[in-house]
Design a protein around this nucleic acid. Structure first.
Length: 274
DNA sequence: GTCCAGGCCAAGC
DNA sequence: GCTTGGCATGGA
């Protein structure tokens, strides 16, 4: 794959489990431990066990997505967005497991990315299944399933230093485990009803719902607005006065076009890195 | 010490 | 409809 910036993609606050090791990026995708390395002509991957079918990884990395075609759909008359693209071209959107994505972003509210990573790491070590790693390598765990989290005690979650986020995470785990919320079914829904379904969960508002819609379900227009993106929006597009919510929503829906979600990710990473 | 972090919710205008 | 304070915790 060309035009793929692994470092930018894995550090852009979409996923919280990738670590920069001496020789590449190490993480766990589903039940696969994997080490990725950026090469001049693509990405190489190493696993603990032999792999015949790599579709799970291609799907996760979205390496078959033609980035040029995505970026060509950005508004051409937007100098700020074009600058963001210049600064981190090759940044991609991953396609994550819905439960891992939902749970991670429930944990994300008013936390710095470093801390989200710490909480998620503790959660995996305490409640996740161990996965195969190369000989001599430190152990690694899968992200704990909804039923694995739903059958522990809320206090056990709290012990992972997640504070007030323990209750919403625990409730979400139980609702997903029981089938009251069927995450697989959301794939078949349109964006708006899928968002409504997610927002029925305690602790899931528009921002977290949009993260899940974009990062796990791949709705290309989903546009999470956090403090950083809000900063970008106000600074670049509404420098005079703070826009009303309806006005802002209309702007987002019309200005950024069919790949608004990608545009959002470029703005987020651009502002955070500069 | 103070401020703030990929927010959300309930209460009060 | 919009604004405000509270929520746990820890990095900057």
């Amino acid at each position: 794959v060309q035009d793929y910036d692994l470092a930018a993609t894995l550090t852009s606050g979409q996923a919280f489990r990738w670590q920069c090791a001496d020789d590449g990026w190490e993480g766990v995708v589903g039940r696969h431990w994997v080490r990725l390395k950026q090469e001049p002509d693509g990405i190489t991957a190493q696993t603990a066990a032999a792999v015949r079918d790599w579709r799970w990884l291609e799907h996760h990395l979205q390496s078959q997505v033609p980035l040029a075609e995505v970026l060509a759909q950005f508004p051409a008359d937007d100098p700020h967005l074009q600058l963001a693209v210049q600064s981190c071209r090759g940044l991609r959107l991953l396609r994550q497991d819905p439960w891992e994505c939902l749970a991670s972003f429930i944990l994300s509210s008013t936390k710095q990315i470093v801390q989200i990573r710490q909480i998620v790491a503790q959660l995996c070590e305490r409640f996740g299944q161990p996965v195969a790693v190369p000989p001599g390598h430190a152990p690694a765990w899968a992200f704990p399933s909804a039923s694995e989290l739903g059958r522990c005690a809320e206090a056990d979650l709290r012990a992972c230093r997640m504070g007030f986020r323990a209750r919403p995470l625990f409730e979400a785990a139980q609702k997903v485990a029981s089938g009251e919320l069927d995450l697989a079914r959301l794939h078949a829904l349109e964006e708006a009803p899928a968002r409504e379904a997610l927002m029925r969960l305690r602790g899931v508002g528009p921002k977290i719902a949009n993260c899940v819609l974009l990062f796990a379900y791949g709705f290309p227009r989903a546009f999470p607005v956090d403090v950083w993106v809000m900063r970008a929006l106000r600074q670049f597009y509404f420098p005079r006065r703070r826009p009303a919510r309806a006005r802002l929503e209309r702007f987002i829906a019309t200005h950024f076009g069919p790949q608004a979600g990608y545009a959002q990710q470029y703005l987020f990473h651009y502002l955070r890195k500069r």
